[in-house]
Design a protein around this nucleic acid. Structure first.
Length: 104
DNA sequence: AGCGTGACGAACT
DNA sequence: TAGTTCGCCACGC
């Protein structure tokens, strides 16, 4: 059973549209908290693997970051490409355009 | 109740 | 431009 904080994080991730990505910082901002590290920790535990598209969460600079799932970072890139997100050298192409900032 | 750790971020050198 | 350092909050021991 995850903590309430973790549930908030997972719910925020579920809001990410297909073909888009977001950052840990954006999630923290959306949850109105400065716990960026805590968000990363919560996402890393991700008990709702297929339910929560945690692969759509990347670093603030457009880098892939990491992935605890099967295949690790390589798998994360594969999933993003399957949704139409171009990835090269471990970074998102047109990151600013792909970024979902919970602005609307 | 205190300490260390973590799928990060920004600043500094 | 690249590598390093400190800070942030939540969680487990």
């Amino acid at each position: 059973m995850p903590t309430p904080f973790q549930n908030e994080v997972y719910k925020a991730i579920e809001k990410i549209p297909k073909g888009r990505v977001t950052t840990y910082g954006a999630i923290a901002c959306y949850l109105n908290t400065n716990a960026i590290r805590a968000v990363g920790t919560a996402v890393g535990k991700n008990p709702y693997a297929p339910k929560v598209p945690c692969h759509r969460v990347v670093l603030a600079n457009g880098s892939i970051g990491s992935y605890s799932g099967e295949g690790g970072v390589e798998r994360k890139i594969e999933l993003l490409r399957q949704e139409g997100v171009a990835v090269e050298k471990g970074k998102i192409i047109d990151f600013e355009k792909r970024l979902f900032d919970y602005t609307g």
